[in-house]
Amino acid sequence: MQLKRKLADKLSSGWMIFSLAFFLLLPLAIGVGLVLKSKGLLHEHSLLDLLFSGNWAPSQNKFGFWPFIISSLWVTILAIVIAAPVCLLSAIYLSQFAPRWALKLMRPVIDILAGIPSVIYGVWGILVMVPFVSSLGAILNKETTGFSILAAALVLAVMTIPYVLNMLLEVFRQIPVELQEASLSLGATRWETIKHIILRKGLSGIISAIGLGFSKALGETIAVLMVVGNVVQLPKNAFSSGYTLPSLIANNYGEMMSIPSYDAALMFGALLLFAIILAFNFLFRYIIYKSEAL
């Protein structure tokens, strides 16, 4: 009996380490796989050229990823800039001011929003956001078809909101009510308490929620692909069309394999996406680390 219990104990912790190691090694394996697959391209072209050249002509063996990188960053950053304040304000309202039934009502709504397949968001984007951006462009005197960075950012923002909002609600829920009592009893108003205490206490949680939303938005493929226009160019402004890295891969992988290096180029695109997400993750980690020192 004693032996059996000890064995079970040993095995269970071994199993835990194995699962943990699996998750630790998975990103590493993906990264290594992508590097190996895109090695061919790196032999033919210099890394600087691949990253910063705007010349994209696969049939002439020219692969400049700069337009894709810029489009991806434009769309994602714009989406987060739109989504983050909305999420923050609604999370504060729901956790601090709203009656309890409002929060109860909102939870399933948020879950439903998060569960809608992205292709439906894409269709909604084409039907609603693209005409909206098109007429907005007409008002502002910008040349646009509506299929643009802005349309993609708006669709992405709506898709990101439920994720970030959910995380923010959890962040605010974990801040003890006694901290608010302490602040109020020192003579603060509700708003001063929110500004100085709640936002400060929740700062690292808020940053990590936005960071996760950022990663999700950067990788979002199908909905963006449907509304961003898919034109290889450096976007002049938010009304220009663009072409994001995930759309590039999804649109072209498995086609035109007759062109040499094309397969490797798409793999390199995936590697780029992976590296950008990794870099932003490190950046957010760093900011969180700094904010926790407060």
Binding site: P176, L179, A182, S185, G187, A188, L294
Partner: peptide, 26 residues
């Protein structure tokens, strides 16, 4: 009116700031 009363709770809940900041907050 609340500033007429200092509050001490069951457990300490220091405000998320420095030691001096806790005193100067109010």
């Amino acid at each position: 009116i609340r500033q007429k009363m200092g509050l001490l709770l069951q457990r300490p809940f220091p405000l998320p700031m420095s030691i001096a900041g806790n005193i100067t907050y109010g």
